[in-house]
């Protein structure tokens, strides 16, 4: 498994859906994000891995509030549309903004018609602090068309789990700081069957998204 995930980062590797959960813990090493002071490749920029599931994952039932304050039923409102989904939080200065920026930069390069078809959904793992208003402001920095979702944490956690992503309830620490986590991967739902066929692990670059987005939008990936 580890060998498969370390395979050429730009090759989609067929794996069992059950092993998606393993991808969460292996991501840090797969994308070179493990802090290692003496590795010779330490200066190589990290990139993510595109994983094709041979058992696609269905879209979870999830109704939350979107970043404009409206009720948003994920299944109903994105049915038949290509969707990129990410579970993150806005008080995350490292991975979350980079992930959204990478996606946004790839989206900008698409023809207008394709941009209009694609839905990018950011689901917060920190609903107490990430109100719809805050989500809207944060996402606007990347693309005003991105949708932010905030709401019941348990429902969010359940939906994430069904997609192979483990998120823990945010904890406020004694010193006032928070411990929150984010998903390690971006999920791509095909418009053909509203299921996840492709997963992009942390560190996936704009170039990698640019290569795959046209196919995802067409329902060909």
């Amino acid at each position: 498994m580890r060998a498969l995930l370390h395979a050429s980062p730009r090759t989609a590797v067929p794996v069992r859906a059950a092993l998606v959960v393993a991808a969460v813990s292996l991501t840090a090493s797969a994308c070179g994000g493990t802090p290692s002071a003496s590795r010779p490749d330490a200066a190589t920029p990290p990139s993510g891995t595109a994983i094709r599931l041979d058992r696609p994952l269905p879209k979870p039932d999830l109704t939350l509030t979107d970043d404009r304050g409206r009720t948003f039923d994920l299944v109903k409102q994105t049915a038949g549309k290509p969707v990129l989904m990410y579970f993150g939080y806005t008080h995350c200065p490292d991975v979350c903004p980079t992930t959204m920026a990478d996606i946004a930069n790839a989206v900008k390069k698409l023809p207008q018609a394709e941009q209009r078809k694609l839905r990018v959904v950011f689901v917060t793992t920190d609903p107490d602090r990430d109100t719809p208003k805050r989500l809207h402001r944060w996402l606007a920095a990347f693309d005003t068309r991105f949708t932010g979702l905030s709401g019941d944490f348990d429902a969010t956690q359940k939906a994430a789990r069904s997609l192979g992503i483990a998120v823990e309830k945010p904890r406020k620490n004694a010193d006032g700081s928070y411990t929150v986590n984010h998903g390690a991967q971006v999920l791509a739902f095909s418009p053909a069957d509203d299921k996840v066929h492709m997963i992009y692990t942390s560190g996936t670059t704009t170039r990698q998204y640019s290569a795959d987005l046209p196919k995802i939008i067409k329902g060909a990936l």
């Binding site: 802090p35 330490a42 483990a166 998120v167």
Partner: peptide, 25 residues
């Protein structure tokens, strides 16, 4: 690896080596 962040203590810069700060780490 689980996507959470923690404060890192003092970090070693090994002899003939590197300490790399990068996205995801």
């Amino acid at each position: 690896p689980d996507g959470s962040m923690t404060e890192a203590g003092p970090l070693a810069v090994p002899a003939h080596g590197r300490l790399v700060l990068r996205m995801g780490g």
